[in-house]
Design a binder for these strands. Structure first.
Lengths: 208, 208, 208, 208
DNA sequence: AATGAATGAGGGTTCATTCAT
DNA sequence: AATGAATGAACCCTCATTCAT
């Protein structure tokens, strides 16, 4: 059954590629792009450095693959939260804590963050843009919240979305420096009261 | 007068060192530590690469000097704001916008931020700690604010200080990615209403 | 009928080998041996790189096969000319123009020339000798020409054969550089009058 | 005397560069461009491989420098011959034998020939063109020869120049293959009678 | 007969650092 | 105080070759 052989072969290749991706996550989560050694990634994945080039064209491609996977995993959290939670305010809180949990525990996601934040010459912007999209997501949820009365109608949606994004990114940045993101969930939890205060309907927003 | 010569020489040496620092700021503000080339710094300063080693011991030393200068300049803003503003709330707001302005316009400070945020192998923590101190500063100001009634007494000082730090760092991170910090002042301005809302005395803080 | 299968398989194998040879011709005609990539040859032939090793032992073997085929094709021209032309002088002229035509149009022959001219480490001399043999062929034809009176008896056979060989090789080298041998036939045509002048019987040869 | 120091330093650098060029000649004269190892060149010159990059930008630059030097040396022969010999025919003969002598004894010139003949991807045409110019030189000399009656007026200048170029290039190619150009002078000497026969004034040229 | 996957040696190049002057 | 020159370690990447299927 040569066809079965083919399949197994290809499957094995995909496994290796997956291992490589995980290894890349480990390495890129620890050191900046320029300091990351392909040799370390290959070693970590248990294959030769040359093999790496069978699966990825070059160093930048590896980084891009990590970024893509990171985005997919973060989008996964969004999806799950969207499905499970009805009301806007809670959805937002859950999204934040869900992302925090993911970031705190998933090395590949941590690697993606590192890569996204630094201007590596060869990893083009295509992969680094998504920060903007999270603002849109937050705005969307806020609008839902206004509709379902979990969020005050006085909230200036756009600016608040931007603000919340800053809060999360700031927490993420600081947690990354402090203890490799282990404290991120705690930080987000600590921020929750302030967020509720800002959004809860019983207060008017006298913006400047 | 050989002594005069000596003096001139030493003065000239300091000038060169200063030029080197500025050049380092320019380069480190643009690319990550590992991508920064001593050659580029030397070129930018208009001296030979070899000379650089007369003024600094090695690459890490240059980075450390940049970090020190950055911290001095940021501390300068704190000093000026502390002197000029009486009431806690306004002092805090002024501090934020003052720092934002500095970051947006001063390449060396931008360089410092870049260096502080990334885990460069050889620039040890000594220089990266200051993030923690800003939380202390914020807490101090908040306490003053409570005392002078510009800040609500219900505000949980420690957590709020941490939260505000996250906001600023988040704005800084995003502005850095977006347009090399040009938009940071605008971001801080946009965040002002939320901050006022959180701190102003006429609302109770019944957070968990 | 398993035997028929066998036959078909073997035939198919030969086809592939042939395709491989053609592909090698294409690649070796374009770039020096060391720059020729087995991957390019395999791609050009439409098979996998691994398969190439079923048909040839290694890179040098591929080159040797190309050289052999080239020599066979050039010898073919000699054979055809010998059969068709009686008189020595005309035979010589026809041989030159026939070879020129072949070189100008046959990529595999071009590849052979490239390979023969450069000192590739692993394609040993076995394959590169034939230059000498062309001198012998030319001498033989010259002798025939003297006998049939189409070539002057005063011609110093050995040296003239060597000289004619140089002319052809020179034209070949220059045409190769100029336009990938497209101009070789024209060059040979332009050289014809000089050759006739040197060989025609009505003039005495007062060599040193 | 710091100025003297400067001078000595720079002179030392030029010496190294010169040594590097000679070493490159040795290596490039032996193996094709792609097989030439920068390590071998550096070793041959007695410096580190890294130093090589202080004097030349990259491998292609080294090759280009060799080509330039080769052209200068060959042009030198032309100059000397032009000065020493009055009559066209003798000038031509002397030029050929002078070049042959140079090629046979000068490794750097041999290297230049090797480089000029093979299509190395990164050594651009700028450096490989000069073959054409030799045809012009030959034509010029032939014209002089016609004027001073050392060359027959019936000679078709352009075509004859091209033909003579082919002869020399052919001899050069074959000598290169045979014994690293040692036999080139002998080959040129052997060709001399044929050339004289073609050019000497007492015969008419019935060109096609 | 053929393929996808893997290997490993080696090459060119970069760059922080040092040295002689 | 400054420079040109030199060093050497290391990195990314290529590519002929091999192996399991």
């Amino acid at each position: 059954m040569p066809e079965a052989d083919e399949k197994r072969k290809r499957a094995h290749g995909l496994l290796t590629r997956q291992a490589l991706l995980v290894a890349a996550g480990t390495v890129f989560s620890r050191v900046p792009y320029a300091d990351a050694r392909l040799k370390d990634i290959a070693d970590e994945a248990g294959i030769s450095q040359g093999s790496l080039y069978f699966h990825f064209g070059n160093k930048a491609d590896v980084a891009k693959a990590v970024l893509e996977e990171q985005q997919a995993r973060m989008a996964g959290v969004l999806l799950r939260v969207t499905e499970s939670e009805r009301r806007g305010l809670e959805r937002l809180i859950r999204l934040f804590s869900g992302l925090a949990e993911l970031v705190a525990t998933d090395e590949l996601v941590q690697a993606g963050i590192r890569l996204a934040v630094q201007p590596a010459i060869d990893v083009e912007d295509e992969a680094r843009t998504p920060y903007a999209s999270w603002v849109l997501v937050a705005a969307e949820i806020l609008r839902d919240g206004v509709e379902d009365r979990s969020v005050s109608g006085d909230v200036p949606i756009g600016q608040m979305a931007e603000f919340l994004n800053e809060v999360f990114v700031g927490a993420q940045t600081l947690a990354g420096l402090e203890d490799k993101w282990a404290s991120l969930p705690a930080r987000v939890r600590a921020a929750e009261p302030m967020i509720r205060l800002l959004l809860s309907p019983q207060r008017e927003h006298g913006a400047a």
